[in-house]
């Protein structure tokens, strides 16, 4: 077991990757490709050699499935929504909606029809994706192994692509609303005339690069930190579950149960933080005067 421990961990952290291998590439089993081929990666090395033109089928598949599950449940409740006595499902959905609506109203004071549904989607979706972390680490990969799929990472948020995909979408919204609310001039002014400013015209121009550097970094840091915070937390949590799974089977529960219970807090908190920071960033984008 000791020798294969790192292999086991490596294996668990490898996504099921579908991508393009270049012509003349020597695959893991020794065959050499004649043409550039779209195929499933058989090893981690193959997956990384695919470069940018590859899809993590497991991450994306689970993410889409969980997002669809969320929307299916909420759509069902929305269809049956009644202003009379609500049923159990509607009650639950209303609690979620009101919770998100409250969070949005506390932070964001403008008028925007996108932010509240966006926040609801983020919270529920990220929560569901995180929740996959509580499924025992070997359970689903073994199942898919029996179905012939070598790799299966079931927690989409432990894939940095997934968290970056979401945070960059949020970033795009930040830029969009900044430009929409403040105009191009206002947005550029915000980036170049703060935090250091002067009444002296010459000094003002001199300070532009400094301001641009500071504001630019803080702007770029938003999506990066948003993505890496979620990814880091979940990746670490998943890693610890994998490490616990290396213990003898009769001892695992002693560590995995407390960690799982603690993780319930982490996954909820991370989903909430992602949502809350999205709201904060977007409300900052809407604030005209700096």
């Amino acid at each position: 077991m000791a020798g294969s421990a790192s292999e086991y961990i490596q294996h668990h952290l490898q996504n099921l990757t579908y991508g393009k291998l270049p012509a003349g590439y020597e695959r893991a089993d020794g065959t050499v490709l004649q043409d550039a081929t779209w195929t499933l990666a058989h090893t981690g090395k193959e997956a990384s050699d695919m470069g940018f033109w590859a899809l993590h089928i497991d991450s994306l598949g689970w993410a889409v499935a969980l997002g669809a599950l969320f929307l299916f449940i909420f759509r069902m409740a929305a269809k049956r929504a009644t202003s009379d006595q609500p049923g159990g499902l509607q009650n639950f959905v209303e609690v979620m909606v009101e919770f998100v609506d409250q969070s949005v109203k506390e932070t964001f004071h403008g008028k925007n029809k996108v932010i509240a549904p966006l926040s609801l989607t983020i919270f529920c979706w990220v929560f569901l994706m995180n929740l996959m972390d509580l499924v025992p680490v070997d359970f689903l990969p073994q199942l898919f192994h029996l179905m012939g799929l070598e790799y299966m990472k079931v927690v989409p948020t432990t894939d940095v692509n997934v968290t970056l995909g979401m945070s960059l979408s949020v970033f795009a919204l930040i830029i969009y609303y900044s430009l929409k609310v403040k105009g191009v001039g206002g947005f550029v002014g915000e980036l170049t005339l703060h935090p250091f400013s002067s009444d002296n015209m010459f000094l003002k121009i001199l300070l532009v690069p400094v301001n641009l550097l500071l504001e630019g970094v803080s702007l770029i840091a938003k999506p990066i930190s948003l993505a890496l915070r979620l990814f880091g937390n979940l990746y670490a949590g998943e890693l610890i579950f994998i490490l616990i799974a290396l213990l003898p089977f009769w001892a695992q529960w002693a560590l995995s149960v407390p960690w799982a219970i603690f993780h319930i807090l982490v996954i909820t908190l991370q989903a909430f933080i992602f949502m809350m920071l999205t709201i904060v960033y977007l409300s900052m984008a809407h604030e005209d005067s700096h």
Binding site: N15, L60, T121, P156, V160, G165, M166
Partner: peptide, 19 residues
């Protein structure tokens, strides 16, 4: 590995939010 998954996720995100 940073790859197309990111864009796929962004597209899915967009569709879900719109829905």
């Amino acid at each position: 590995n940073i790859n197309l998954t990111m864009i796929g996720q962004a597209i899915a995100f967009f569709i879900f939010v719109v829905f």
